[in-house]
């Protein structure tokens, strides 16, 4: 067993003659969280979908745990690598109960003890057992994203691919989900690859970041260097500047603030 959980080398992906990912390479160590940041159209989600096995037309090499994976993945692969999607409203089957959604991977792989595993998965993501037989539309956005995470975890994978897991959520719910992801990483010894457009979110969860622009990973850096401003590529610098500008709230000490009583 190597220390390298994921290795991606010279990954190229084209959609009808247009190359959208032009030779991306990175490595992720076991238990590490790697962030990919970029704007829409930079190819960041496309990279993730090729890694997950959803997109079967790519060139290059993708290795999990030292083994190169084929374009068409085996069923066993999906027990090791799972994905969480951006939109909690679109990633749960609208006509299936949470119970049915969670049990799919167990049924497909003939994994037993469905009841126990579902109950454990629900408690892992801090959802009440009463949610088990409800339908997705009866849950809030944050609860749905918890279901999506529970589904990804239920077959005890080693790697979780996170595609903008919090960008459709309110900030207060985002905080809960980010904390949950951090806890789960600890408990289950998971390796994450997380895609986001939000540098603050990425830096919160990840140790290393790859910046993508126009299908290229233009820079890889540690979060410390990013924070300190030790970055070389202009796009990284610009994303950093925008993120810092927003955080730095105008803070002039002043008097008039009418808070509602009850504060």
């Amino acid at each position: 067993m190597s220390d390298r959980m994921i290795e991606v080398a010279d990954l190229r992906i084209s959609f009808s003659s247009a190359e959208v990912v032009k030779g991306v390479a990175f490595e992720v160590a076991r238990g590490e969280t790697f962030g990919i940041v970029g704007e829409s159209g930079s190819g960041k989600s496309t990279v993730l979908r090729a890694m997950s096995g959803l997109n079967e037309s790519w060139d290059g090499r993708i290795l999990f745990n030292g083994e190169a994976v084929p374009k068409r993945r085996s069923r066993e692969f999906f027990r090791k690598v799972q994905m969480v999607f951006q939109d909690p409203f679109g990633s749960l089957h609208p006509r299936q109960t949470i119970d049915r959604i969670l049990s799919e991977i167990l049924l497909v792989n003939r994994i037993g003890e469905i009841d126990r595993r579902i109950n454990k998965a629900l408690s892992d993501v801090a959802l009440p057992q009463t949610a088990r037989f409800r339908y997705p539309h009866q849950l809030s956005g944050g609860q749905r994203q918890r279901v999506a995470i529970a589904r990804a975890l239920i077959a005890e994978p080693k790697v979780l691919l996170l595609d903008e897991p919090t960008s459709a959520l309110d900030v207060s719910v985002q905080a809960e989900v980010l904390n949950l992801l951090a806890d789960l990483r600890e408990e289950h010894g998971l390796t994450y690859v997380m895609v986001s457009h939000n540098l603050a979110v990425i830096s919160h969860l990840c140790a290393r970041v790859g910046v993508m622009q126009n299908g290229l990973m233009v820079e890889q850096t540690s979060v410390e260097d990013l924070r300190a401003g030790n970055v070389s590529h202009p796009h990284t610098q610009e994303l950093r500047r925008l993120s810092v500008e927003l955080e730095d709230v105008p803070a002039e000490p002043s008097s008039v603030s009418q808070a509602k009583p009850g504060a």
Binding site: V171, S172, Q174, A175, L178, L199, A200, V201, S203, H204, L226, R227, R240, S243, V244, E247, V249, P250, A251, E252, P253, S254, V256, S257, A259, K260, A263
Partner: peptide, 20 residues
């Protein structure tokens, strides 16, 4: 005055954002 917001909801919202 946002940084001096008094209401716990406003403060909570500001507080729970991840920061670079």
């Amino acid at each position: 005055d946002l940084m001096n917001a008094r209401h716990p909801y406003t403060r909570g919202l500001l507080n729970c954002m991840p920061s670079l």
